[in-house]
Structures are given as structure tokens and as C-alpha cells.
Design a protein around this nucleic acid. Sequence first.
DNA 1: ATTGGGTCTTGACATATCTCACGAATATAT
DNA 2: ATATATTCGTGAGATATGTCAAGACCCAAT
Lengths: 187, 187
Amino acid sequence: MQEKLRQHIEKIIPLNDDEFAFVWSHFTVKKFKKHQFLIQVGEEVKYSHFVASGLLKLVYTDDMEKQHIVSFAMEEWWESDYYAFYTQSKATLSLECLEDTVVFCLSFEDYRKLCDGLQKMERFFLEKSNFGFLGSQRRIISLLTSSAQERYEQLLKRSPSLIQRVPKSLLAAYLGVSRETLSRFSR
Amino acid sequence: MQEKLRQHIEKIIPLNDDEFAFVWSHFTVKKFKKHQFLIQVGEEVKYSHFVASGLLKLVYTDDMEKQHIVSFAMEEWWESDYYAFYTQSKATLSLECLEDTVVFCLSFEDYRKLCDGLQKMERFFLEKSNFGFLGSQRRIISLLTSSAQERYEQLLKRSPSLIQRVPKSLLAAYLGVSRETLSRFSR
DNA sequence: ATTGGGTCTTGACATATCTCACGAATATAT
DNA sequence: ATATATTCGTGAGATATGTCAAGACCCAAT
């Protein structure tokens, strides 16, 4: 079970058994059913979540109650409302299961302890953060430069598996386009 | 001169004189005039830059030769084509001075040495990366949820100083809206 | 004083996308 | 098996924004 996390970390930095045991001791395993919430707007954000299996959506809900998808979290993704997590404030985003999901949870306190206790893990999280930043930057460029249809085609190319797993209305909410407009692209 | 960098770092982690001397030894100072390029598309990206004074634009140029502004870098910002920097590949973005500018340059090699030699600096860069990621995420949400006019008003509120320093055509290129459309908002 | 480059505004028209409405197809729960 | 909710596609009209063109303004250099 925890092997998934170990392999994930070892893609970036090698760990011996003792080190991984130390790492693993900071996590707790939680299981959720489709439609359950890991984070709700206004509540405390206790954990950063490593997705062992399943699929989640991180959502911003606007004044009109319209949902916008900040990101999808599949296997091997880390996900949380990170602003609230790092600043230990209340959630402005929600995190909800699109499928039955298993996550490994890391509290903010344990996150700090882990980094302080094992130098390598601070390095690991730095790499993760850098990749997250670069991914966001690429998405911004896509939003600035491409039409809705082009963004849809880019998404198909980059994440073909997503299309099988989530309804198109959610892809639309991720791309920043209406459900109906996206529907007309397929033709 | 280097005091600016020290104060900047000490907002996040305290340093004694020896530690800062060690940090500073990894940087080189460079000065540029308005219109000069720090990074050009296709060239190597040697440095991450700390802006001591001045103003820069990080630009993505599309197939139609249209410019899109990934970010503005003012005093105390770190800027580079970070994808190319981290992967040591060729630049896809350009970095150009909008004003006469002084930067402190950190090569990739020195960046690694700095992190390895002084634990605290890895921590510092992790904080920076996290903030960069959160900033990008907020901009994505803004692009997904708000009209061009709303995004303009948000920018005015968040960075009123920018408006004095850069032509509106560049603000438009940052917001993802045409120069003409942005011009009509002021009324 | 004059020139030339950059900036800003504005009008007219084109186009992408949104919204609302409806119905068909499909999945899900009882 | 039936009922119910979700999902998907499509038409028609509204709206935001883009594009092209013209002119006004400002400022630095000659």
C-alpha cells in the first residue's frame, strides 16, 4: 500500500528503509466514496493529500454558485487548498471525490516535522512545488494565448485518460468554457 | 547594495553575517538598460534573477508574433524562464527590461550549491516556490471566473503601482485582452 | 519649431462564446 | 423493471471581446 508513495518519492530522491519508515509514520490513510468532500469551503484545512487511488476535483465556487475547476487530482497527485493549508486559515476551495478514493494525509504539523527531520524531504517538496508552479504557468499561457477549442485539444493530448473518467461538463469547468460550447467542438 | 537581498531573505528566515556572506558569494550583480534582454527565446537560461531595482516583463510570443505577458518582475521579485532554468534547456520565454534594471544573478549550479551548503536556503526557496504557485493559482481562478473588465479592476486593486509604470497595452497583454477593449473600460 | 515614434481613444463591424430552452440518451437508485 | 437524475447535443438569440482603421496626444531628438 505505502509502496505507491515510496515509489513516487523515489522518482526524485532515493530513500533507504529507515528513511521511508520515518516518512510513512507521518501519514494517515483515509478512504472516501464518490461525492464525499475532503475539504469544504469555510472549514479548516487539516491535510495535504497524496492520492493513492481515485480521482478528485478542486473547485472554486463563484458568487453565482457556478463551479470552476482549479485542478483534477489523479493517482500520485498531491492536492489540497494550499493557501489555507500553508496559512492555516479557512478553506476557500472545496475538494470532492469524483470516484471512490484512497488518500494519504499529511497534517501541516507533520509536514514541518518531516521537512525538519529529513533534509531530503524538504528537497522533495521543493521539486514538487516547482513542478506545480510550472504547470500553473503553462496553464496561464494556454488561457492567454489559445481559443477554447484549442485549449480543449491541448487537454485531450495531455490528459487523454481524463476524458474517459469525467463528464464533459467538468472538463468545460476546467477549461473555462460553457458546457454547450465545448459540446460543439466534438463535431 | 546586497542589503536588499538580505532583508528579502530575512523576511522568511533569519541569517547571521557568516551565513549571508556565504549566500552572497553565489551571486553576481548585473545592470541592464531599458529594452535590453536578460533572456532570449532559444538561448540558454543561465540564471535565476533577483530584481534589486527596475522592472522586467516575462513574455511568451505566439505563432502570430503576438506577445503575452506571463509576469511582470518588480523589485524583490525572482524571475527567469524557470522551466528552462530547472531543466537546463533552451528558453521558450523572453525576459526584457521595461526600465533600467539591476539584478543579482544565481546560476543553476550555484543554486544547487547554495541549497546543499545551507539548509535554510532550501527552506527559503521552498517558501518562494509555494508562494509563486499560489499566485499562479489565483491568477488561473481569475481568468476562469472573471470578465476582462473585472480582471482589470482586480489588477488595479492589487498592483496600483504597475499602472503608473507600464503602458496599458502591456497590461492588456498581461490580462489577456486586446488593447482597445481595455481602453474602453476606463470610462 | 519640426519631425517621428510611441501611446491612447474611439467607431464600425466581425466573431467567439454565453445563455436559455428543449429533448434524447444514458446511468443510477429503488 | 421502473422511476429519477445525469449527461449530452443542438438551435436561436444575446453579449463580450477581437479586429481594423483613423485620428489625437505626448514626448524626445534633431
